[in-house]
């Protein structure tokens, strides 16, 4: 294995659209979006899990669709709209999904919650009244080790009802 430290690290200037704001960044070209969000932009709501695409806790929205920030390179994302959990509330006003999750106890340790909220938001934007199976399918890339999923599904149904 080559010695990491001996490698020249190439840096690039990038313009990213994160939560509706244009951010100008000077970044090592190999950094993942997950690393850039957490380390360079202090947006630590996006969680760091397996780093291999298996757990979904690093989910963000790219042009409104859930993708895994641990497997994305910012150089591929110029001109695309990136939404993180920090972009979900409007000022002090929570998104209806966030309110429903809090009310129903759909988060326990909370580690999976940002990713699940974003996957759910994407679902409700394309399907205002999803069935239980459609909710399960939309969340099929987001693992939760605490809740058993029932409260999560109920909270999404509650929010969907309120958002009509």
């Amino acid at each position: 294995m080559k010695n990491e430290l001996a490698r020249d690290v190439e840096r690039v200037v990038l313009f990213l659209d994160v939560n509706g704001e244009r951010r100008d960044l000077l970044l090592p070209v190999h950094k993942t979006l997950l690393e850039v969000l957490r380390e360079d932009m202090q947006l630590t709501g996006t969680k760091h899990g397996c780093e291999l695409g298996e757990c979904g806790t690093c989910t963000v929205l790219i042009d409104g669709r859930p993708e895994l920030s641990c497997l994305l390179l910012p150089v591929q994302l110029q001109g695309r709209a990136i939404t993180t959990i920090e972009g979900m509330a409007h000022g002090a006003e929570l998104h209806p999904l966030q309110t429903a999750f809090a009310e129903l106890g759909a988060a326990q340790c909370g580690y999976c919650t940002p990713g699940i909220l974003l996957s759910a938001r994407s679902l409700l934007e394309s399907n205002a009244k999803p069935s239980r199976d459609e909710i399960r399918e939309a969340l099929a890339g987001n693992l939760c080790r605490c809740t058993g999923y029932t409260k999560i599904i109920e909270a999404i149904e509650l929010a969907a009802g309120r958002m009509k």
């Binding site: 695409g53 979904g56 989910t59 790219i62 669709r65 859930p66 993708e67 895994l68 497997l71 994305l72 996957s119 399918e137 939309a138 969340l139 099929a140 890339g141 987001n142």
Partner: peptide, 9 residues
């Protein structure tokens, strides 16, 4: 294949 977020990419 895999899961919804992986299929989006």
């Amino acid at each position: 294949v895999s899961s919804p977020p992986l299929r989006n990419a």
